[in-house]
Amino acid sequence: MAKDKKTFQDRLAEEIDEAISNMSDEEIRKEAEEAGDDIAAFGNRMRAWLETAKDEVAEIAIKEAKASAEKGRAVRNQNVVTMAPSKPRTRPDIFMPDTVAARHGKKLSARDRKGIEKDLEDLFDDDAWPDKKDGDE
């Protein structure tokens, strides 16, 4: 068995913790009353202490949040990079987009007409399509 490296105080504290943890509420109350402790007064002191602790924790959290926000602002202000405004690029007046959709319904160009006619010829050219269809073998 390995040598126990806990001190006497550590072992005593563990034994006391275990004894208290295993006791029922009634047993603890009875033992406190036998020792002459005022349970109600102790409970009131603990409630008051908890309220004070809650307020202190809230104040600390607010201070930390404010400090974090200030640090964020300082870092953000240092990291700002200004960019030179760019001039908008002008398109030549003679520019005409290649697709009908891009022209928003403007007239068809000769190039568009030729392209559409070629597509229609290919679509209705029976020699361009294979004789077998998907379901036929």
Rank of each mutant, 00 (worst) to 15 (best):
D4N: 11
K6I: 00
T7I: 03
D10K: 09
L12H: 06
A13F: 01
E14G: 06
D17F: 04
E18T: 09
A19P: 05
N22C: 05
S24H: 02
E26V: 09
K30R: 11
A32D: 02
A35I: 03
G36M: 01
A40T: 06
A40Q: 14
G43Q: 14
R45M: 12
M46R: 10
R47F: 02
W49N: 07
W49C: 04
L50M: 10
K54E: 15
I60C: 09
A61K: 10
E64P: 01
K71Y: 02
G72C: 04
G72D: 14
N79S: 13
V80H: 06
T82P: 01
S86G: 06
S86H: 07
P88I: 09
T90P: 00
T90H: 10
P92K: 10
P92V: 05
D93Y: 03
I94T: 15
P97N: 02
V100K: 15
A102M: 09
R103P: 02
G105Y: 00
S109D: 04
S109N: 01
R111Q: 06
K114E: 15
G115N: 15
I116W: 14
I116K: 14
K118S: 08
L120I: 13
E121S: 07
E121Y: 08
L123H: 03
L123E: 14
D126R: 08
D127V: 06
A128K: 15
A128F: 09
A128E: 10
K132I: 05
K133A: 03
D134L: 11
D134R: 14
G135M: 05
G135D: 13
D136W: 04
E137F: 00
